[in-house]
Design a protein around this nucleic acid. Structure first.
Lengths: 348, 348
DNA sequence: CTGAAAGCGCTTACAG
DNA sequence: CTGAAAGCGCTTACAG
């Protein structure tokens, strides 16, 4: 930075040394008091605190972590798909709040679902010596995660199941949430229920499809493969796919289950375009803003990203705060069902 | 953290000292090469790079910043209203991308519009010695911002105007965007246009209201105070307020301008409830997801948070990278208008 | 152009 | 219980 004449000395220049001097004690004692270590005489504690207050001393966490035995930096990192998408940002906020309660800072990064990018982020964060990592894994970095974990950094994976030694996971019950919702459609009398699913490479997508199959099996109903489209990755692709199914199949579906946000919206567009939005039932997985304002309101299987984030933060902070366990834990956060109309349309 | 027997040594333990040894040079030379400083013999550069690569050396930015004259940490901080709201998170993403291009990390925090919380965040971030600060200011921390700036940290304020020495700002043209939109309604023939506005304490809210007044003045039309409600802070309050205006006023408005996201949605709810959504025109300030899927589609004055974020990042990084100026700069990002139907409804 | 030494702000053995 | 010294991983005067 260019030096501008008017500049004051940069940042609170009062150091521990200053506090020690003013309190008339050694540097080590100040350190002990600041860190709340036991075994310091009460009057010294008093003097240090007073000097610290009088001078406006501000502890430098970064510098302290350098020599510290445990290297703690009071920082954790959060690797998301994209900080700008609603699921990610709600998760982010929940983690921020949980971390703040312990004066821990949160670093974030967006992987955009690219393993290389995720790898890079994990690399950056571990180099900055974060105390722990919460990751929505792309699936392509298991080796790296295992290594980082073995080197001592606690890790919690979120949203997708990973099976790594001492790595905790938090997921929702994708399978059960889907099964229950599809079962509702079957119970309403629907016999031909289309299914739109995300990339098979994604664990959640596979689980949700299993739920769809289980619902049919549980009701003793066959699945018509022609009503199923998987590996759909955008709203546009969903628009197209469901359009095909609705028009090209001779015996078209009377209901649709869209296994992801964007696919729900794409389906909706096509239903509106074909004028079928009041005749074909629709349930989506994952809620979205204004779903209640549409006509009909869109029924969804809802997840609670804030709850997921809180859970992940708890597991991580638990390990960081001395409770590092030998075994991996897996928390499952329940899904809900929000009936708004579209999922309650009966078959003709 | 509890030490688990199976743990490997924590983190890449190869240090600059190791590289120096392997390359057969002094520590200072390694530092010079890593930092790309001029005046090192080509063959030494080669040897250092080779040793560095062979050993898998990873530079510790945090440690380096401790002794560094400019104290740079390759970190900037972003103080948002709430990382989970769409405007904030889009801004966040844009800043992340711009910072990443220069290998700079972004710290974020949510002020929730509370000055005390904002103060705390700025405090935390400066203590961690961030190289710069991008802030969506609550308005209650001007003194702190001025001090931090004087101490040398570049600052860019976003979304709201602040007038502080050497603090840059990025805003949108709230006034002009509003004026143009309201003018459209006037040109359509509307004579009674209701106005719903956010807290007067917020600069953007005041600016938008000015735009509403200017449009009327420009068209030589009077403003009826009974159609104006300001200091509205939630969708529910907007629902209520516009309900009152539409039913209690003897000569009800034929159009509504909602000066903020939530207010637009609240208005929409009431219009739908009263069955007026196809008869009363509506324009909102700030776009929102699925606005195009509603019936009618909701017309809005749109801002581009990604553009705002990019702009802010550029101004900040410019100052950080040696271009610190004496004068404050103020960038204004233009707004757009998206016609989707609701704003195009003519008066009866 | 290059390296040995000092030092950034702190913590941690090590003596007392 | 307390303090002087060494050291965390690096950068920066300071000599050569």
């Amino acid at each position: 930075m260019a030096k501008i004449p008017g500049d004051e000395p940069r940042h609170g220049k009062v150091t521990m040394r200053d506090v020690a001097q003013r309190a008339g004690v050694g540097l080590a004692t100040v350190s002990r008091v600041i860190n709340g270590k036991p075994g310091v005489a009460a009057d010294l504690i008093e003097r240090v605190n007073e000097a610290s207050r009088a001078l406006g001393y501000r502890h430098d966490v970064t510098a302290s972590s350098l020599r510290r035995a445990d290297r703690r930096t009071a920082t954790i990192a959060l690797v998301l798909e994209d900080v700008a998408n609603p699921f990610s940002s709600a998760l982010h906020r929940a983690v921020e709040d949980a971390a703040r309660a312990e004066d821990i800072l949160v670093l974030t990064g967006s992987s955009d679902e690219h393993p290389e990018r995720e790898h890079e982020l994990i690399d950056t964060f571990t180099l900055r010596r974060v105390d722990g990592l919460i990751v929505v894994p792309t699936g392509g970095t298991d080796g790296q995660l295992a290594t980082v974990r073995r080197q001592g950094t606690p890790i919690v994976c979120v949203d997708r199941l990973v099976e790594l030694d001492r790595v905790d996971t938090v997921t929702v019950d994708n399978r059960e949430g889907t099964r229950a919702a599809v079962r509702r459609l079957l119970d309403l009398g629907h016999r031909r229920i289309a299914y739109l699913g995300d990339m098979r490479a994604i664990w959640t997508a596979r689980e949700r499809y299993e739920g769809y199959l289980e619902a049919h099996a549980g009701a003793g109903r066959p699945v018509d493969e022609r009503l199923v489209r998987r590996d759909i990755r955008s709203a546009e692709a969903a628009e197209h796919a469901i359009g095909e199914i609705l028009t090209a199949v001779d015996d078209p579906p009377t209901a649709v289950f869209a296994a992801q946000n964007l696919l729900t919206i794409g389906t909706l567009r096509t239903l509106q375009r074909l004028g079928l939005h009041d005749r074909v039932a629709l349930i989506g997985f994952d809620d979205f803003p204004l779903a209640d304002m549409l006509r009909p309101g869109v029924s969804v299987v809802s997840q609670d990203p804030a709850e997921i984030g809180l859970m992940a933060a708890r597991l991580l902070l638990g390990r960081i705060n001395g409770g590092d366990h030998r075994h991996a834990r897996h928390a499952v956060v329940p899904t809900g069902y929000i009936a708004r109309g579209s999922g309650e349309i009966p078959p003709p």
